[in-house]
Write a protein that binds this DNA or RNA. Structure first.
Lengths: 221, 221
DNA sequence: ATTGAACCGTTATTTCTTTCACAAGCCGTT
DNA sequence: AACGGCTTGTGAAAGAAATAACGGTTCAAT
């Protein structure tokens, strides 16, 4: 039973989560097309770019409004703007990181977040040995300062990069501090209340399902 | 008659991909249960651990065989072994990495792959500046050596960690060299032939769909 | 003007997934 | 050896999602 948030402009229609998961894909493709100088695109073109059927793209977009023009297609700039608004990409999203081990440091230094509006404003670690370190231009703080910092900096998103065995307890702390979204890099399937949005990043799981399809190949043992 | 794990590529029952994607989740939960000393588990228990219905778990498993015992549940050790065999986790998977920038280096040093059987045996970079560097205990090689190395080391899996604008061309090279599976960290949606299994790791996409659900919250602009 | 090719938005249809429900089997207890 | 509490495996039913189909609009070319 999925309790979901209230819709925005559209009102009554509940948008399936699979659809929401695809929107960022559209945003990315459209951005690139815009940068290539394309000003109008059809569901056909967008679909062949993303390997999906035009019907699916039109259907997905129709959950949110009518953005196209019959006979023409979609204005790239306009659609981008609309999708950005729908997804909340037209604003800054302050975030924090928990766990400044090797992975955490790589995440802080990853240059891909900021251009999309995701700004890591604080870093925490439960290990006193790391507290006080300088990572990027952040000072690593103790977990005790979590609540204060999140409130002061209006941080709603946390990125978790702690060892597997600490993940659930760290995530419990974050939930307790009213974090609304968690991007979890630890190889576990954490429990969170339904009001918190959880996304897992787990390359090992990806590989483990990949190998199923690789078994037929003649790379014998 | 027993349906064999390796022979089902063209076999009668095609297993839905969603099911295959869930198997690693089961493996992980079962592994942890085993380490906690649990020897028998019911679909009920496993389901509540993973937040899914018992029926789904039973159905998923039934695609591959009959592993449980009525009135008892599943023998953890046995089920783990079976799932490992089905997914091909009972063997070593040699892999290579392309792109030894910051992200690539973090991947090479990530200690989570090897324990699961994924071994990065070679690293490549198209930038001559990086070629010859020592990363972890790997020497960075030029792309020209790709084909030779993959063949010699029997590498079927490649991990791609190059900048977005290079990704498609690198992936084309890998396909050309008969790579069968690609784990792509570049923020693009690459095209690959159907015979190649592609998995994308993309934290930005995850965040961009997360924010949709965060908009209702009272973190107003 | 008129035609025709291109394309959207939406309803209808098909396909895919999940859940239900129950016969059949296991096990401890009496 | 029979009972009762559990649990699996599986068809059938229900629910979701993807695709097809089509009326209606746009625009360029004639």
């Amino acid at each position: 039973m999925e309790r979901n948030r209230v819709s925005m402009a559209t009102g009554s229609t509940q948008v399936p989560e699979v659809v929401v998961l695809r929107l960022p894909l559209y945003v990315r493709a459209l951005t690139q097309m815009r940068d290539d100088g394309t000003s109008v695109v059809s569901s056909q073109q967008l679909g062949s770019r993303l390997q999906m059927t035009p019907a699916q793209i039109r259907k997905d977009l129709s959950y949110f409004g009518r953005f196209g023009k019959q006979g023409r297609g979609y204005n790239v700039e306009f659609l981008l703007q609309e999708l950005g608004q729908i997804l909340g990409l037209d604003r800054r999203w302050p975030a924090c990181l928990v766990g400044v081990g090797r992975l955490g440091r790589a995440i802080i230094n990853y240059p891909g977040f900021a251009p999309e509006g995701f700004h890591i404003l604080a870093a925490f670690d439960s290990d006193d040995e790391h507290v006080g370190d300088k990572v990027g231009d952040l000072d690593v703080r103790p977990m005790a300062l979590l609540k204060d910092t999140l409130k002061r900096e209006r941080i709603a998103i946390a990125i978790v990069a702690v060892p597997a065995h600490e993940a659930q307890s760290v995530i419990d702390d974050l939930v307790e501090c009213d974090v609304k979204g968690i991007l979890n890099y630890a190889p576990v399937a954490p429990q969170v209340p339904m009001s918190v949005v959880l996304r897992n990043i787990d390359p090992v799981l990806s590989l483990q399902s990949m190998t199923y399809y690789l078994l037929d190949e003649d790379y014998e043992i």
